[in-house]
């Protein structure tokens, strides 16, 4: 089981879909993002795994394990 969080509008969107919280997942961060089908409007360029930043380009090599906390970061436009 991993713990999934999201920031900003992306967090709300995932929450609305019932995806925020604990979920069973095996594989890489890239695989997780694919499974979540993140809307391009929210992009989620950056993620944190256990508080450490993972860039979009490093997702494939970031393998998730039981107990990890993943936060997907959304760049909503200016405010």
């Amino acid at each position: 089981m991993i713990t999934l969080k999201g920031t900003g509008l992306l967090g709300d969107d995932l929450d609305d879909q019932g995806k925020i919280g604990r979920m069973a997942f095996e594989g890489s961060l890239a695989g997780l993002c694919e499974q979540l089908a993140i809307d391009p409007a929210f992009a989620g360029y950056l993620s944190q795994v256990n508080g450490e930043i993972v860039h979009e380009t490093d997702r494939a090599k970031c393998l998730l394990k039981d107990g990890d906390t993943v936060t997907l970061i959304s760049p909503v436009t200016a405010g």
Binding site: G8, L9, S74, P75
Partner: peptide, 11 residues
Amino acid sequence: THAMLSSMQAF
């Protein structure tokens, strides 16, 4: 736009 705060915090 308030939603930007948690994103900038995490980023």
